[in-house]
Simulated scan of single mutants.
Amino acid sequence: MLDNLTIVLFHPKFPENVGSAARACANMGCPNLVVVSPRNWDMGRAGALATPKGEDILRSMRVVDDLPTALAGFQHVYGTTARTGGWRKGLWTPSRAASEMVAQMQGASRVAVVFGPEDRGLTNEETEICGRLLTIPTSPEASSLNLAQAVLVVLYECFKHSVENPEAEDAPAPTPVTSNLATHEEMELLFANLKDTLAAIDYLKDENTDYWMLPVRRFLQRAPFRRSEFNMLMGICRQVKWVADKASRSDG
């Protein structure tokens, strides 16, 4: 049902939450789970909460050392946050994002949803690399959700939309297009190159350049980039930096 969706748990603290997340994946038809550098890892404690249906997902999950490795190969990355304001602007609810995510999956794109550690969530730097941020509305008096609860809510909205959307079941299999889209790691390379380019022409402020780059990131992440478009912008960056460097040498 949600074969092109992957749940990414970043640095989870409790094995039981990983097991419960695996169970949520099984409940909602999402077979893909990636765990980044889990703390206090214990397969037995995780398996006790996974139940028999979630055990297969738990056994097949990928365990990696860092977030860039976990997100390699995805075309769309969503991050989750309970905090708002500052860097965390333009937040979507899971119900609003579900239609976009399901459409992306139906187009054969690979989609990842990142959940942060139970005790602190994702940092500003970690949310920065996510194309869109999701937040789950809760009562102000009890805004903190258990990690597995949050996973279940997001998966439920995606599952519900895929069931309610006739195209999810009745449409023919989509023609794979993932090879034509820039991957997450390629977009990160583009953003780093663009940051250097804007710094070279004195567009960016000297302090907190990542913060000033955030609107540029969000603007470019509104629509997926084809690889030809990625190559074009990389070429523009190279040419602009060459001109800036030439002008700097002339002034010197």
Results as ranks from 00 to 15, higher is better:
128 E>S: 09
140 P>K: 09
135 T>K: 11
128 E>L: 09
173 A>H: 12
155 L>M: 05
134 L>S: 06
222 R>P: 07
155 L>Y: 00
178 T>P: 06
169 E>V: 14
217 R>V: 03
183 T>L: 15
175 T>D: 14
213 M>E: 08
140 P>V: 03
160 K>G: 03
155 L>E: 05
175 T>R: 14
214 L>A: 08
152 L>F: 13
158 C>T: 01
215 P>Q: 09
195 K>F: 04
182 A>V: 02
180 N>D: 09
163 V>F: 03
191 F>A: 09
139 S>V: 03
211 Y>R: 13
140 P>R: 07
199 A>T: 13
193 N>F: 01
192 A>F: 01
180 N>H: 13
176 P>M: 13
153 V>S: 06
215 P>Y: 11
133 L>E: 05
215 P>F: 13
221 Q>M: 11
192 A>V: 12
127 T>H: 07
147 L>Y: 07
189 L>H: 01
212 W>E: 15
228 S>M: 01
184 H>V: 03
158 C>K: 00
156 Y>F: 12
192 A>Q: 14
221 Q>I: 01
159 F>I: 00
209 T>F: 00
201 I>K: 02
129 I>K: 06
179 S>V: 08
133 L>K: 11
171 A>H: 00
185 E>D: 06
191 F>R: 13
217 R>G: 04
229 E>H: 03
140 P>A: 05
160 K>P: 01
168 A>E: 00
190 L>W: 09
139 S>E: 04
212 W>F: 10
135 T>Q: 14
158 C>R: 00
170 D>Y: 10
176 P>N: 10
170 D>I: 10
198 L>G: 03
130 C>M: 06
171 A>V: 12
161 H>S: 10
193 N>L: 08
183 T>E: 15
208 N>D: 04
175 T>V: 15
169 E>N: 14
219 F>H: 08
185 E>R: 10
174 P>N: 15
130 C>Q: 06
150 A>P: 02
131 G>M: 15
187 M>E: 07
173 A>G: 10
186 E>G: 03
173 A>N: 14
227 R>V: 10
220 L>V: 05
172 P>F: 15
155 L>P: 00
211 Y>G: 11
194 L>R: 12
215 P>D: 07
136 I>G: 01
168 A>N: 00
206 D>P: 08
204 L>R: 09
145 L>N: 10
167 E>W: 00
157 E>D: 01
160 K>W: 06
129 I>C: 08
174 P>S: 15
161 H>G: 02
172 P>R: 14
174 P>C: 15
166 P>N: 10
177 V>N: 15
212 W>Q: 15
155 L>R: 12
208 N>L: 02
192 A>I: 15
199 A>F: 06
178 T>K: 09
140 P>H: 07
147 L>I: 04
196 D>Y: 05
176 P>L: 14
196 D>L: 11
187 M>A: 05
194 L>M: 14
194 L>N: 05
222 R>D: 02
207 E>G: 13
132 R>Y: 12
229 E>V: 02
162 S>R: 14
194 L>H: 12
153 V>E: 00
161 H>T: 10
148 A>M: 12
176 P>F: 09
157 E>P: 02
179 S>A: 11
128 E>G: 02
137 P>N: 11
129 I>D: 07
133 L>R: 14
218 R>T: 01
216 V>S: 07
163 V>H: 03
159 F>C: 04
189 L>G: 05
146 N>T: 06
203 Y>L: 12
148 A>G: 06
